[in-house]
Design a binder for these strands. Structure first.
Lengths: 149, 149
DNA sequence: AAACATTAAATGTATATACATATATTTTGA
DNA sequence: TCAAAATATATGTATATACATTTAATGTTT
């Protein structure tokens, strides 16, 4: 739906102004969808993000700092998010023997299982955007990448 | 910068998958910029959003529910955000006599003054996206609006 | 008009975010 | 080699978000 209607604003002072609001609004919209998807499994979007990064490591443990730099939201607190996942036994954490400042995080069977159950739902979330063509998606990606230069 | 580099991911399983991450990442990026811009004035991006909506009313007071439906982030708690702005004397709040359930919020001189000081900085934030053309911005707007249908 | 439903806003609570500061360990270099 | 700098993570704190529940006022129905 047009952003104008979503936030009841008649017009924007420039396409750039609308762009800023549109990105923020769309992210909030996606976040709400994700929250609803993940909630039944007791995790948040950022916790899901961490589990996805860990699964991408094929069972290998990675330092917390690696998680930090790969997360979508760099400002979120990886240390405490890992705490939460640890309580839910979805990740393991152990001190790294070579450098005892570091901790190494890996995903557990339970974590993998939760991700597996979520895979279909996450896919259908992405498929629900099928009114956008692949070409259009790629175009937005190109422009957003450029915007952040 | 390419999202692939920003979150150190080699590739994405589809342009749609990248699109979701790109919107979330770009929103977080914008949010960080906004936080830095607003912080010296003691307000958050959502509080700024409320002040902007109120300024758009030409001094007229509006019900809290009007703020709610015009905010970018519908999930944020307008009631408590108004509390914070009230403490900083940037808005006024009074009970509506016709319907005492409602409260009417309006922006104060101090609120207008803060916005005025911020106008230039917000403009230059938008101008910093000048590597995106107007046409490209409009194209992204069109596609995001369609995505949320 | 009394009972019930609806609406507007406030509040409670758990979690997350933003950012500053602290702690522990390793690295560097005088 | 030992003090200082750098690094990795954890913690503290204020605010914000997500969402359920509560409170107060108004509307509706019979």
């Amino acid at each position: 739906m047009e952003l104008e209607k979503e936030i009841k604003q008649k017009s924007f002072k420039s396409p750039y102004h609308k762009l800023v609001l549109n990105i923020l609004f769309s992210a909030s919209w996606l976040n709400t969808l994700q929250n609803k998807t993940f909630k039944p499994y007791g995790i948040s979007p950022q916790q899901y993000n961490i589990l996805r990064i860990l699964r991408g490591q094929q069972g290998k443990a990675v330092a917390l700092s690696v998680l930090q730099e790969r997360m979508i939201d760099k400002m979120s607190n990886a240390s405490r998010l890992v705490d939460k996942l640890l309580l839910k036994k979805m990740v393991d954490r152990k001190q790294c023997p070579e450098d005892r400042r570091q901790v190494e995080i890996s995903i557990t069977e339970k974590g993998l299982d939760v991700l597996k159950q979520l895979d279909d739902k996450v896919n259908s979330l992405e498929n629900s955007m099928n009114n956008v063509t692949e070409k259009e998606a790629a175009e937005v990606n190109r422009i957003l990448d450029k915007m952040r230069d």
